[in-house]
């Protein structure tokens, strides 16, 4: 069965849909946690410590986080590899272009490929910035997200990178969520408006929610 799925254009698209939904669920929880920054240093730093001990005593310290990381890495890699292979196939299936060109499809639809590449680069930067601290401006402190977030958004490039990435994220989710519903066969004529509305609300909520954090630091609300 795994072979049938991976070798088929329909199957590979299913892999993209499922991995996309997993990442989307993670982002909703991630945004929820991040917004604690507006309740002050104590609240979000305590939350970071709680996350590291999540599942204890059944799980050892950090195990839940590592488990989540493992699922996310599988999802990101599956999503990216499928996207790459399908895109290669799509380009080969249409080797010669029309002489008479027309602007086609919505902006969100046309930017899925480049938007995806931007998000992939962002994830790498983001982990080096706020998880490992490798490229973090100022002294990175593990389990002190409040201080780290303030440092990141006290630089102009930190703000630019995060805000651009979040705009790309909104566009990606807008087309991606609705597409996933079609790929998984749960879309229908009666559900279409609800699905499109959900995609728009999710895109808006995640983009505006994440952007509120750099804006919060810039305006001094978080400092």
């Amino acid at each position: 069965m795994a072979r049938t799925v991976w070798d088929s254009t329909v199957g590979k698209k299913t892999v993209m849909a499922v991995s996309g939904v997993i990442m989307l669920l993670y982002l909703v929880v991630h945004l929820y946690g991040n917004l604690k920054v507006f309740f002050g240093l104590q609240e979000i730093d305590d939350y970071a410590v709680w996350l590291r001990n999540l599942g204890q005593p059944f799980m050892h310290h950090m195990w839940t986080i590592w488990l989540t990381r493992a699922v996310l890495v599988v999802a990101v890699v599956a999503h990216a590899v499928s996207a790459y292979q399908l895109s290669r196939r799509d380009i080969e299936a249409r080797p010669s272009k029309y002489v008479h060109k027309k602007p086609r499809a919505t902006y969100a639809t046309r930017t899925m490929r480049w938007g995806g590449v931007i998000l992939g680069l962002f994830i790498v930067w983001h982990i080096l910035d706020l998880t490992t601290g490798t490229v973090h401006p100022g002294g990175f402190q593990d389990a002190h997200p409040y201080e780290n977030i303030v440092d990141t958004f006290s630089t102009w490039y930190g703000n630019v990178i995060y805000i651009v990435a979040m705009l790309a994220l909104g566009l990606h989710i807008r087309h991606g969520f609705w597409s996933a519903a079609q790929t998984l066969g749960v879309g229908s004529r009666t559900r279409d408006r609800a699905l499109k509305a959900t995609a728009n609300v999710l895109a808006l909520l995640l983009t505006a929610g994440f952007i509120s954090i750099p804006v919060g630091v810039m305006t001094g609300l978080v400092s």
């Binding site: 254009t9 399908l86 086609r104 639809t109 899925m112 079609q182």
Partner: peptide
């Protein structure tokens, strides 16, 4: 050697017989 679906919807817009895009959802 046909390509894959990115749900662009150009097919259903061009179809002279009005086959709906949702047809692909049913196939999936």
């Amino acid at each position: 050697g046909f390509g894959g679906c990115t749900l662009t919807g150009e097919c259903a817009t061009a179809c002279p017989k009005g086959i709906p895009l949702m047809s692909i959802t049913s196939m999936n």
